[in-house]
Design a protein around this nucleic acid. Structure first.
Lengths: 345, 345
DNA sequence: TTGAAAGCGTTACCAC
DNA sequence: GTGGTAACGCTTTCAA
């Protein structure tokens, strides 16, 4: 009876197949499947039962084409293996899944060219919205213009464009993170405080540095911290920076390293060179990567609450998707940070 | 001139718009855009130029619907923040992107229910193929049957179904990994060797245990290692296991912990309880998570070469997508592992 | 070398 | 409550 309506197993059953098997119109079947408008209770049950029997699954592409809505969100980030990003992605994906959304993830590998390609691809896939954390070097944000011009919600997070590029933004309180680090080192009695930072082209490193310097100025009365290095956050460069710092006579006794991975590198360098942490050098990292808790000495660091961050991200995104687009200025959402005190400082 | 063909900026330009603007048929435009069949060189250039001018981007859904090919691959894994998986995903995504494929990632959070849901969703999205690393508890693999019955390539990796479930598989050499760990501990002179393992419902832990036991039998002549615990890989349970192990009089002097995160937990437990590593207890972990290199003492572990793993994964998948489906038995692809010797053993 | 037209699977409008 | 049908944007046969 039913077999006769089944196609070759490799074929996909469609609404038309269901309709034929039930002597109904495709319209009614669609209504029954989607709970839209009224369908006789009995009819609905028959449809659902048959759908199960024939192993029917909606073709999302067809639905997407018709509805101009894909229930897919694109997410572009530099590297998924970074602790903060991995945590955020996990939360975002779980929350979106619960709301019936699919997530497409693209890694730019910190390459602006790749970032642009991903933006194009996601646009072609007609994502309903897009979430972006930029590369360290993104200076041209025009590849993202297509989204705003087509009224597709775009939300930047963590590494975001400058305010001059009008866009919705959610980011951690990097200024405060830097400030807390500086304050902690000053209050620990450090006199020669240095910093190893990421490239200033990225808002997060710029803000962490600003907060850090503000703390030193305010609490230490110093005009400008002397031992101050910027670099790409590679282990080799960190070692170079350390070599320079410890060559002179006024060695640092406190160091703020704006990424935990690099803070670990500092730890290793110190061990290799007989520098005692925290006795001779106090150290503060950034992100509360679990690794900071298990090295010894454990590393004092700044927690960014990635789970909370992810929740706010999704809440903001949903608001953007559901509410009609507005030209009103929307201030950046800032999520909290706090200092986690451990052995290194 | 051109403006008159532009729609409201929020609308998407289509092939019809291009065709109208150029006085061509949509067919020709499509051919020009896709390099399919011959189009006069000049026509093609005009099309491409206009596409650029109007900011045309192909609607992938429409193309997918028509072609029955989405250029999208689904990937289901337990948790993206695990080192091995993060690395594999990165490689897989980069390689697939280079080949023009999109990747949809879904995290099951080690929940078989979620895993099933993701499989359904990806099927609905009509992915061209699917890659799966199962949850620790997946025992019913039938949610994946839809893919094989519809001739959609499915490739399991790392945590895979038993051989009785006929499917293409690629996995690390877990047996050998276990063997290497056992051998290393025996050769280091350990007499009371124990193991802390994950749940035996998962093939990876089952194989690591088998290899480990084989090594002890072969090299130590022991019938059965005595200090042997299985558990879910949570820190608390690891501590429980350790407490039991070190309560009795015959304490272990060598320990194989089948996950690096737990090996770190062992390290901390040892520190807290004054057990000297490696003098009193030699320790071997699994995965070569970067954390094992930076804790002290650094942890001897088994490297799984995730980058190589990812390459083989993509190569196998491409072969499955491109070659006609076959019923021939395809043996599992096994990727190499090796022991990384560090301070802990 | 190009055009006309059908069709992929779904949904929503308009009838009845 | 339900059915008929057009339309979403693209590609591909068939014809010219």
């Amino acid at each position: 009876m039913i077999q006769q309506f089944m196609k070759d197993s490799q074929q996909h059953n469609t609404i038309l197949d269901l309709a034929a098997a039930l002597n109904l119109s495709p319209a009614t079947v669609s209504r029954a499947l989607n709970n839209t408008s009224y369908v006789k209770k009995e009819t609905k049950e028959r449809v659902l039962e048959m759908a199960l029997k024939l192993g029917y699954r909606k073709n999302k592409m067809a639905a997407g084409l018709r509805n101009n809505k894909t229930n897919t969100i694109g997410l572009i980030l530099p590297k998924i293996s970074m602790y903060f990003h991995a945590e955020v992605v996990t939360v975002v994906q779980n929350l979106l899944h619960a709301k019936g959304y699919n997530l497409i993830i693209g890694q730019s590998n910190d390459d602006p060219g790749m970032e642009k390609e991903l933006a194009e691809t996601f646009f072609s896939s007609r994502v309903d919205a897009i979430i972006v954390s930029c590369t360290l070097e993104t200076e041209d944000f025009s590849p993202f213009d297509i989204f705003s011009t087509h009224q597709i919600p775009i939300l930047f997070y963590d590494r975001v464009p400058p305010e001059t590029y009008r866009a919705r933004v959610i980011k951690g309180d990097d200024f405060n993170g830097g400030f807390l680090a500086g304050k902690h080192l000053v209050e620990a009695g450090c006199k020669h405080i240095g910093m190893i930072n990421g490239p200033m082209t990225s808002n997060i490193y710029e803000a962490r540095a600003a907060g850090f310097i503000a703390a030193l100025r305010m609490l230490q009365g110093k005009e400008e911290p002397k031992l101050f290095f910027q670099q790409q956050l590679q282990a080799e460069e960190t070692r170079e920076a350390l070599k320079k710092m410890f060559k002179g006579k006024s060695k640092p006794d406190g160091l703020f390293v704006t990424s935990d991975r690099n803070a670990v590198t500092v730890l290793q360098y110190a061990k290799e060179n007989g520098i005692k942490i925290p006795q001779e050098l106090r150290l503060v990292g950034y992100s509360n990567d679990p690794v900071t808790a298990v090295v010894s000495p454990s590393i004092t660091t700044i927690d960014q609450y990635p789970a909370l961050f992810g929740e706010k991200l999704v809440a903001t995104l949903m608001e953007m998707i559901e509410s009609p687009p507005t030209d009103e200025y929307q201030p950046a959402v800032i999520t909290p940070v706090s200092l986690i005190e451990r052995e290194s400082a």
